[in-house]
Write a protein that binds this DNA or RNA. Sequence first.
DNA 1: TGCATTACTTACCAATTGGAAACTAGTTTC
DNA 2: GAAACTAGTTTCCAATTGGTAAGTAATGCA
Lengths: 121, 121
Amino acid sequence: MLKSKTVTKSLECKVRITAITDTMQVLSGKWKIHILGTLLQGGKMRFMDLLREIDGIAAKMLSKELQDLEMNQLVTRTVVDTKPITVEYEVTEYGKTMEPIIDEIANWGVFYRNRLHGKTD
Amino acid sequence: MLKSKTVTKSLECKVRITAITDTMQVLSGKWKIHILGTLLQGGKMRFMDLLREIDGIAAKMLSKELQDLEMNQLVTRTVVDTKPITVEYEVTEYGKTMEPIIDEIANWGVFYRNRLHGKTD
DNA sequence: TGCATTACTTACCAATTGGAAACTAGTTTC
DNA sequence: GAAACTAGTTTCCAATTGGTAAGTAATGCA
């Protein structure tokens, strides 16, 4: 019988797999990273700002994704008592810990495009 | 009229948004990160090794995801002329550039679990 | 001869995701 | 009084995702 490789059976690997699954779940869906990225750059933003800013998103999706992000304490929702009521969304300190991930993902994407055309390798 | 925030309309931001979308597309689906993570740790691995190693994945999914990864040149597929034919999969040098992303995602996931229970903040 | 192993593929099905459009509801402006 | 702006919610539908199970084809072993 051939000896087969076993790399994911240690506790360490299982922890890593769970960690990856957790993060991907928190960032699941088409829009969460973009909402987070936009809020990280824009600071406090209102619902309508986000709706106009994030190209292609529908109100239903924005609303649902913001609820998810709020539930995971990555953003805060604050109702402001203006003329027509407005709601401000902002990334929490905890939410800001996502920045390294988003940056790495953005960096890789740039690298990917360059490779497709540049072909330096 | 209220002045609304515009943060994603610059060329720089559009490039970033495209970059994020590209990366997420390359890593799309439930399994790609795990396959990549397993191969990064295990080096050369056969189809059946991966099938046994990656908990819960079905042959259909593994096959399809490996094809996607191969198309994007993140892994190589090599047929080995053994008794029953075997196929070896390996992460390319290019594929290894995904490591920082995977590491950040894994790190955040560990941080997330610690926060859920530890509550140091 | 028949069963096992390798690496898949195919067929079918269920659940989730996400998009369009319309609707709600309170307030303000013309 | 009508239209517009705020922040959503609701309904309905289509596409994608992913899972189970079975089938295929080549080879080796008892």
